[in-house]
Amino acid sequence: MESLLVFIGGIIGGGLRIGFTDLLPAIGFPYVTLLINLVGAFILPIWNNYWAIKWHCQPTLRKGIGVGVIGSFTTFSGIMLDSSHLIMNHQFQSLLIYLAITIVGGFLLAVLGYQWSNRLREQEGI
């Protein structure tokens, strides 16, 4: 059951990422992957540490959404492929900005996500 939910979650998360990437206009800077990754890094700790607990989610559903949907919504290989394209196009300034925001932003948002979810749990006593 867990495998099936993670598989379906992976289809949903990947579908959302690919859909956004296809539908939003390309401007020569991989802002879609960047935004998706930052949103996912912030949401995952809130899901695991707040929503899944608040809504008494079964462990299988918790994994289906956390590991499947959010895990596949964000991508790590995509960062490297985007970087490779920027290198091949000699867009080194864009590369630096992209990697700096990716590296620092994801960490900070994950930390903020945990802290915020902890605060919500304290407020609601869960």
Binding site: I18, G71, T74, F107
Partner: peptide, 22 residues
């Protein structure tokens, strides 16, 4: 291409980084 997009993850990775930080 679809496979590695779903296979690799940035959210779990940053969650683990935050865990080590805490």
């Amino acid at each position: 291409l679809g496979f590695i997009g779903g296979f690799t993850t940035y959210s779990t990775f940053n969650g683990e980084l935050a865990g080590l930080y805490f």
